[in-house]
Simulated assay, not measured.
Amino acid sequence: MNSREEQLKAFDRLLTIMDDLREKCPWDRKQTMESLRHLTIEETYELGDAILDNDLEEVRKELGDVLLHLVFYAKIGSETKDFDIADVANGICEKLISRHPHIYGDVKVENEDDVKKNWENLKLKEGKKSVLEGVPRSLPALVKATRIQDKVSGVGFDWENPAQVFAKVQEELEEFQDEVNNVDKDKMEAEFGDVLFSMINYARFLNINPENALERTNKKFIKRFQYLESKAEENKKQLKDMTLAEMDVFWNEAKKL
């Protein structure tokens, strides 16, 4: 691995290249924070894909892309004299020191749960009016639900054990089925949302990341369905012309791969 000196030298090289690009490249000169925003989101998702695939070489590359975006935003901030990369780095350093009094102060903690509770309480002392202020509005609903539950748990608003949460899941499923039987679409949707929220909560109690779990299932389904498509093509058939029984043969084959 590289030494700290080599790491700092590499980061300085990136800052220098960013300066050059911003000055000399027509595309880079044109960019704003707003124009970069959707690209940053895309790069973050690509990093997430690489992590789920456990492709460490791809993780390294995608981290570089994300790092470039961070440096880019800081460069734009320096041009307007609002902040630069040193302000960004020092800001997060100060926050980490402030939020970890069990490392940089005299607070004692017993476990990870104590750390999380201290973290949320410290944020309230810093002026936050609600523990939920830090949940981005634009997060996908599944991720947002997970973060909401994590945050309220940090201040003690939580179930005591997984059995209670599972009972809530069953209760919400029954309420959802009642509305399905009543054929009330609006209430069905509301109750289905409650089912998902309770399932996400149950996953949290079981230390399962629901976003990762669902994406793994997505990938598994895609792999199996594409196997089904390839087998249909080998047999010179169109899926729409095949019976479910015929498709199940290939689907079951795919499950064994």
Results as ranks from 00 to 15, higher is better:
36 L>M: 12
25 C>S: 12
252 N>K: 07
203 A>F: 13
29 R>Y: 00
214 L>N: 14
251 W>F: 11
204 R>E: 02
62 E>H: 01
223 K>G: 08
202 Y>T: 05
87 D>K: 11
170 Q>R: 09
134 G>M: 09
8 L>S: 03
52 L>A: 01
66 V>N: 02
44 T>N: 04
68 L>Q: 08
93 C>V: 14
70 L>A: 06
46 E>M: 04
6 E>S: 11
64 G>R: 08
66 V>G: 00
197 F>Q: 14
254 A>K: 01
63 L>G: 00
26 P>H: 00
198 S>A: 15
254 A>D: 05
240 K>A: 09
116 K>N: 14
130 S>D: 03
112 E>N: 12
100 H>K: 15
223 K>V: 07
105 G>F: 02
78 S>Q: 11
234 E>A: 11
127 G>H: 04
230 S>H: 11
177 Q>R: 07
105 G>R: 11
242 M>A: 05
135 V>W: 02
87 D>T: 15
204 R>M: 09
25 C>N: 10
109 V>C: 06
218 N>Y: 13
139 L>C: 09
58 E>P: 00
50 A>C: 04
227 Y>R: 08
206 L>Q: 08
250 F>W: 13
196 L>P: 06
110 E>V: 12
127 G>S: 07
212 N>V: 14
243 T>R: 04
132 L>G: 07
131 V>L: 04
201 N>F: 08
218 N>H: 13
1 M>V: 09
152 V>Q: 05
41 I>L: 09
238 Q>W: 12
243 T>Y: 02
230 S>L: 12
37 R>K: 14
218 N>Q: 13
